[in-house]
């Protein structure tokens, strides 16, 4: 019916094509200025957090284990949207007012850190104990063995699940629209609220998300091939 109404009316068709064209630029702007930087920055910080959390979980020190467990449990046990609201709308009540983008980065980093830490923990534990011992036997310290021997091998194991996390994150950044970050989806909302062509504009945004994620899976395939030079 919607399609009928479009093609039956050449004037409306022209208007829709025009809207699709003119909204492309602001949507891409939102993607390039906010969605993509938000994703990349949050993922990098999240990954560092995740490695630290994973190491804390497998460390011998009870205190680190407990801190890591509570962190992962709290983040996984509460909705991301609620976390973002606490950071952006809640913290000002105790005098901490953050820029929308910064709030979003904090929220997403914490989220990635918790979810990815489980992936990295499993990957580290999947590397045979003999690899640690071989590193130690040539005089390496814990840190050297971790950096040179264990993490590179764990990276290979964790690449597919981490790619999943990354792709999810691209889409989750749309939640940042609700804490006033003018990322791609917020731009879409702004455009749609002026011309009421919700179906068209939101679909256009969805297609752009899809394109971004498609490229990411291509990169994932490429990385997997590169890390597969050695078979283990």
């Amino acid at each position: 019916m919607y399609l009928n109404s479009i093609f039956a009316d050449p004037e409306r068709t022209a208007r829709l094509i025009d809207i699709a064209k003119t909204s492309l630029q602001p949507l891409l702007e939102g993607a390039i200025m906010n969605t993509i930087p938000l994703t990349i920055i949050s993922f990098i910080i999240g990954l560092i957090l995740a490695v630290l959390t994973a190491l804390a979980r497998i460390s011998q020190v009870k205190f680190f284990q407990i801190v890591a467990r509570v962190y992962v449990s709290a983040i996984r046990g509460t909705p991301l949207l609620v976390q973002l609201f606490i950071i952006f709308y809640g913290l000002p009540n105790i005098g901490i007012t953050l820029d929308p983008f910064i709030s979003a980065v904090i929220g997403f980093s914490l989220s990635v850190g918790a979810y990815a830490s489980e992936v990295i923990r499993a990957a580290i534990l999947s590397i045979p104990k003999g690899q640690w011992e071989a590193g130690y036997s040539i005089g390496m310290t814990y840190t050297q063995a971790l950096k040179r021997i264990i993490l590179p091998q764990a990276a290979k194991v964790s690449l597919p699940p981490l790619s999943n996390t990354f792709i999810s994150l691209v889409k989750d950044t749309s939640l940042a629209s609700l804490v006033l970050v003018t990322e791609m989806f917020r731009r879409a909302q702004e455009i749609a609220s002026t011309n009421y062509e919700f179906l068209l504009v939101y679909t256009e945004a969805a297609l752009l998300y899809w394109v971004i994620c498609f490229f990411l899976s291509v990169i994932q395939g490429f990385l997997e091939k590169r890390l597969d030079r050695y078979a283990s």
């Binding site: 045979p128 036997s137 040539i138 005089g139 021997i149």
Partner: peptide
């Protein structure tokens, strides 16, 4: 440890 060199039953070479 640096005074000793260890050869393992399962080799334990670094596969990467």
């Amino acid at each position: 440890r640096r005074l000793t060199g260890m050869v393992f039953q399962g080799y334990n070479l670094f596969p990467h």
